[in-house]
Design a protein around this nucleic acid. Structure first.
Lengths: 269, 269
DNA sequence: TGAATTCGTCCGGTTATGTCGAACATTCTT
DNA sequence: AAGAATGTTCGACATAACCGGACGAATTCA
């Protein structure tokens, strides 16, 4: 691990919605690095466009971030497919639809679509990062990771309770994930936000890996009346998206070695 | 300038829409860096989330890019204001509206909105970077930079002709920029794309600095019939956006020292 | 099917270079 | 107008980034 890059990462992580502008001394004090080192770091980061220098010598995130993120989104094949599915769900149910992926320890929202009679979920715009427990998409994504990995993630960042319903014990979470993986969908019964429920399902790629999760968010009073309606809709769409990505759902045994599958695949270029 | 960061920047710049996945050896050969160094670099970049490792040990841009870009966009106050203006223009004229900022030597599109009878300009999505000469927004942004800076930018990247109308001589460009600055708007008469014309105007912040440019893109046959209609609409909206950002257009002399203006401003935190 | 090539990954020595403290320049505060 | 912040520059030292080489695994070719 290169020290310089790690420090650059620490600096970038300081920039948030609440505090989007930092000075050299400020950064140095926060991260306990010498002022001159920070100066070199931010100057270099500004030079490659990840930061930009204001006229007063302070620093903000650079516009090249936008460029990179667009390249990422456009080159991610599944996203175009997923988008179509999201539009179908939004049109059919009229609720808010989310697309999420796993980035290290956190769930990142990759896309969002508001239905015509949707509640506005302010905190879940694209790019927002949330811990994996508690949200329906988080459960789906984590349910397909090895258990020891889930444990270390939970240990590292704890299991904060967002509402009274949030799962906060590791044992309960293990049971929940097992059920989610088995039945192919996850619910969020007001575990993240009160009065808001979600149903989520996984999206598989051609190699049978879970690469994303899609969810529909519905006000609790509406959701509780017919949860299976939302669950079935999201599962149906996710299955179709997965199939369009080359997933073959025939596998009765999901633990098949992916190498064999890959060996039979034609080369992608 | 820190070597490590510069190399990280070179690596990140390799990732494009056409080639969004790179291997270690591939990067090493392209940038003429030793394979082991590249390995350390990409592993570190993946660790801080700017890259992600595929299962085969190749690398793609990381999802944290999306997070950073969202923070950038949401924390850029002017963007919310500009968005309102863009919606007004799109509603009034029904054409495609662009918002652009200057990032080093390049013009970056920060936002885009399609009008109801708009032509589709495929190459100008958010995040796309283009050279400054030739486009209307580029002229507007560059017209408020010191001339020697414009010269060095043009010398560095040349003045490629996109169409027969593109300005390719530095003298003609100086005259054009002078006129643009004086009259407060810029035209693009099929200088970037044939059959497409634009009108652009600057957006000022509270300190009187040009921080962005907004443009409307119209098919040439429609534009040529009444160019002043589009010019006036875009200027009117840009003036309003600037005013909402705290710009005081009263200055009869635009060369007033900004320090005085800043001294009268209350502290922003 | 087996051999050969190419890939990502790992390791340790060398030296380039990132780091730090101190001094300077600049801006904001009192 | 003085003081205390800030961002910036410099030079010397010691760290850690860099490279070449070796390894296993995956892929390609015969």
């Amino acid at each position: 691990m290169l020290n310089t890059i790690l420090k650059a990462g620490q600096i970038l992580d300081l920039f948030s919605f609440d505090k989007s502008e930092w000075g050299v001394s400020e950064i140095a004090a926060t991260l306990d690095i010498s002022k001159s080192s920070v100066y070199d770091l931010v100057a270099s980061l500004a030079h490659i466009g990840l930061l930009q220098r204001t006229e007063q010598g302070r620093y903000r995130l650079g516009w090249r971030m936008l460029t990179y993120s667009q390249i990422l989104l456009q080159s991610t094949e599944f996203r175009a497919e997923a988008r179509k599915g999201m539009e179908d769900v939004a049109a059919e149910l009229g609720e808010t639809v989310h697309l999420a992926v796993l980035d290290g320890n956190m769930v990142v929202y990759a896309d969002k679509l508001q239905g015509h009679n949707a509640v506005h979920v302010a905190v879940t715009n694209s790019g927002v990062r949330l811990p994996g427990h508690g949200s329906a998409v988080g459960k789906v994504l984590l349910s397909h990771r090895p258990w020891h990995e889930v444990v270390s993630i939970m240990e590292e960042q704890g299991m904060t309770a967002f509402t009274a319903n949030t799962i906060t014990s590791i044992e309960a979470f293990r049971d929940e994930l097992e059920q989610v993986r088995k039945q192919g969908y996850a619910y969020d019964m007001e575990e993240t936000v009160v009065d808001l429920c979600c149903a989520a399902a996984p999206i598989f790629d051609f190699a049978g890996q879970v690469i994303a999760a899609m969810s529909v968010s519905v006000p609790a009073y509406r959701f509780e009346r017919q949860p299976t309606l939302y669950r079935n809709a999201i599962m149906r769409v996710c299955r179709r998206v997965s199939r369009n990505l080359g997933y073959v759902p025939a596998h009765s045994n999901p633990n098949v070695d992916t190498k064999e599958v890959l060996a039979h695949e034609s080369k992608r270029t």
